[in-house]
Write a protein that binds this DNA or RNA. Sequence first.
RNA 1: CGGGGCGUGGCGCAGUCCGGUAGCGCAACGGCUUUGGGAGCCGUGGGUCGCAGGUUCAAAUCCUGUCGCCCCGACCA
Length: 494
Amino acid sequence: MAEITKRSEDYSRWYLDVIREAELADNSPVRGCMVIRPNGYAIWENIQRDLDDRFKALGHVNAYFPLLIPKSFLAKEAEHVEGFAKECAIVTHHRLKQVTHPDGRVDVVPDPESKLEEEYVIRPTSETVIWDMYRKWIQSYRDLPLLINQWANVMRWELRTRMFLRTTEFLWQEGHTAHATAAEGRQETLQMLETYRRFAEEALAMPVVAGTKTANERFAGAVETYSIEAMMQDNKALQAATSHDLGQNFAKAFDVKFQSAEGQVDHVWATSWGMSTRIVGALIMTHSDDDGLVLPPRIARAKAVVVPIWKNDEEKAAVCEAARRLAAELRPAIGPVHVDDRDNLRPGWKYSEWERKGVPLRLEIGPRDVAGQTAVLKSRHDRAKTTVPFAGIVAGVEAELARIQDDLLARARRRLVANTCRVDTWDDFVDLFENRGGGFAMCHWCGDGHCEQMVQDKTKVTIRNIPFERDETPGACVHCGKPSRGRVLFAQGY
RNA sequence: CGGGGCGUGGCGCAGUCCGGUAGCGCAACGGCUUUGGGAGCCGUGGGUCGCAGGUUCAAAUCCUGUCGCCCCGACCA
């Protein structure tokens, strides 16, 4: 089997090695697309389940809108079309025709006679179809708020792709809500960002910085965009989720009006918010190490793996029996537990395999353990090894999984804090990103988009967001020196 | 679109400069011994060398063309 490149050698290769070795995904025959393998999809399923519960608890319901969007819809909101036009896939025909080349080769081509009257765009996002439907569904304030989410695939024809982080097709959830007032819309936008923030910390053990995007980085068609930004192990920032206050832009573009209790007619107020399979990439880069994938127990498919150890058939029967009984006892309390009783592999091989694949906890049971009624516990993330008696093992394993979950968050948070600093001069700023490995730089900024763009052109560093919790002591812009009302988060981004 | 790299059994690669019987490791299969941190030995099966032309007695190797993939840039909700 191929080795995993060390993070210190080549971070980007390490990332791809981990994905390959943990069997999370594979390249597809279609350039830019990826196949999500069972191990990778299991992570996404756990993310879906957890997030979906949170959405439902807040009153949202799921629906499904079509993949194909009439081309004309995209044009209805001016900024929106500008943002997405460059990366849309277009469906132009509805039939193939078999042709035989002169050399006898059989091929299929689009049948010219099946050319569509109106071409369709494969959704890069669903605002337009959804708002076209909302026009029909919303009449009065009694229809509001309308709180719909959908789990779907979308397609954006990116030039340069990377597994999970940026693929031509990806999976996500997109929430689309309609409200009677601007304040309600804004409240919803912030509530969903907070939902993402808590999910990231509680389930993914991923600390994030929540804040407002600058005008340059705003979603096409939004009044305000918010994001949570996580720090990867190479000190780059990754936008883990966004939520958008769309104001009345889409309601106006699609003519969605409602009658208030007082009888007035007004356009509704909209929001949208999303988290995508990109988060799986963030998860990999937050916790994993040179030996492979590391996953927080909350999101791992198998919470633990039991490896029985034996020398002969007699011992094999005894340890496998004990292993299965143990797994059966654990499952109701902690969820999926895998028993690896393959007889063609030695224990050492199994250990390294499950370590590569990121199973949080390993239990070893050998003849000595059976004799002493104990099991050896080994945690993936810090290699901590303990011996626990069978009696009370459920509580012991539960406690260890809780410790792992907490430890991963604490570890990631220490890294975030350690690599976040204040930078007040341009020389320092350049030095930080060119010579000292970068990080999150909290700097003063004048608020001018041109100034922001110049920083990006010079250094590839962007303003990730304007943190909600920020130092608002006035100062001077780190780039141009003009007055600033507070610090913003600068970093290199994914 | 620019720069770099790569297409050779299932996977990873050598062989290409300098043309001459397609090899190695892992995996697979069979057998025996093994099993508390990546097992050992013996045996077996499996490859139109990305594709198309050309040069040659002879092409994985040289020439021309072409397709594809990966990485780095440019671009980017």
